[in-house]
């Protein structure tokens, strides 16, 4: 019982973090058709900037300024990088972001070193909030929950209740029509790209000290973010949310299950000592997202809630 409740809480928090990371990418991908390989690198930049800023001032300033900084870098990348490459087609754009991820990784390694930095949870939030079944639950996780839900509501409000949001939604499906109506589509693209990167940066700020801040975090997170976007479906934030939640819960529950293949398929004569039988469900957890990716692309290429195929 306690395993289930803890897994549920942790899974929801992880899923929200994943959604924050991938919501920007979903917007960018649906609008420009660019699958941004460097998106997780912006997440990493967010965490490192927050580490630096909270080192010289406080975590709360970092919470505001690190995402803004990351967003500005993202907008600059779109304006002076992606736009030049755009003429050469989608593959060139994809490769551009691939190279960008490479470079950001290396620069981070040079500036901050190869080992994890000591980016900590702020003292104000570093206490156990409540006790469940005799185990303490850290307040910071609930803080992540609040920030994520707040961002979710803000994003929903901006996209559905403001004029800018309506234009963005229109540009998602009919960029040419929006351009014909006199809106500056390149600038919309730049803004959305920047905002998407800022969201990734925000995820980095609050996720970097919850998970770990090291140069490998972008490589670890990057493919999973793709899974969320592709499984959720093109042009659908709701789909991305659903996919992020499913992934978050699936992974946390898989880690919590203490069973091997032999326990489950033992009735087929699979022995505990055989190679397949000794694989634990927990060790499968990192594979689950990719299994989901491949299966979804095979049987439902448009994703869970997508309105068109990739």
């Amino acid at each position: 019982m306690e395993t289930i409740i803890f897994s549920l809480l942790n899974g929801v928090i992880y899923g929200l973090l994943l959604f924050m990371l991938s919501s920007g990418l979903t917007l960018i991908f649906s609008m420009m058709g660019v699958l941004n390989f460097a998106h997780a690198s912006f997440y990493m930049l967010g965490a490192y900037f927050a580490y630096t800023i909270s080192g010289v001032s406080s975590f709360w300033l970092a919470l505001i300024f690190a995402p803004i900084l990351v967003g500005l870098i993202g907008a600059a990348v779109e304006k002076w990088g992606l736009r030049t490459v755009h003429a050469n087609g989608h593959v060139a754009e994809l490769l551009f972001t691939f190279g960008l991820a490479y470079i950001i990784d290396e620069i981070v390694k040079i500036v901050y070193g190869r080992n994890a930095v000591d980016y900590r949870v702020p003292e104000l939030l570093d206490f156990p909030l409540f006790e469940l079944f005799g185990a303490q639950y850290p307040a910071y996780r609930i803080f992540i929950l609040f920030i994520s839900v707040g961002m979710l509501i803000a994003l929903w409000f901006i996209l559905n209740r403001t004029r800018a949001g309506l234009i963005i939604q229109a540009a998602l499906t009919h960029p040419h029509m929006v351009g014909s109506l006199g809106h500056n589509v390149p600038r919309i693209f730049m803004t959305v790209f920047g905002a998407g990167c800022a969201l990734a940066g925000l995820a980095g700020v609050i996720g970097g000290n919850y998970l770990v801040t090291d140069p490998a975090m972008a490589v670890q997170m990057g493919p999973i973010v793709f899974v969320v976007v592709v499984v959720g479906g093109l042009g659908s934030l709701a789909g991305a949310f659903l996919a992020a939640m499913i992934l978050g819960l699936l992974q946390t529950f898989a880690v919590a299950i203490d069973a091997t293949f032999a326990d489950i398929f033992g009735f087929l004569g699979l022995s505990q000592t055989s190679e397949v039988g000794s694989i634990t469900i927990a060790s499968l957890a990192p594979m689950l997202p990719f299994l989901m990716l491949v299966i979804v692309l095979m049987i439902r290429p448009r994703g869970l809630l997508g309105d068109r195929e990739l």
């Binding site: 493919p223 793709f226 899974v227 990719f290 299994l291 692309l297």
Partner: peptide, 13 residues
């Protein structure tokens, strides 16, 4: 893109 994504997923698997 679907091909690229599947190749990525398979590589990870």
């Amino acid at each position: 893109t679907p091909f690229a994504m599947i190749s990525l997923g398979v590589a990870e698997l």
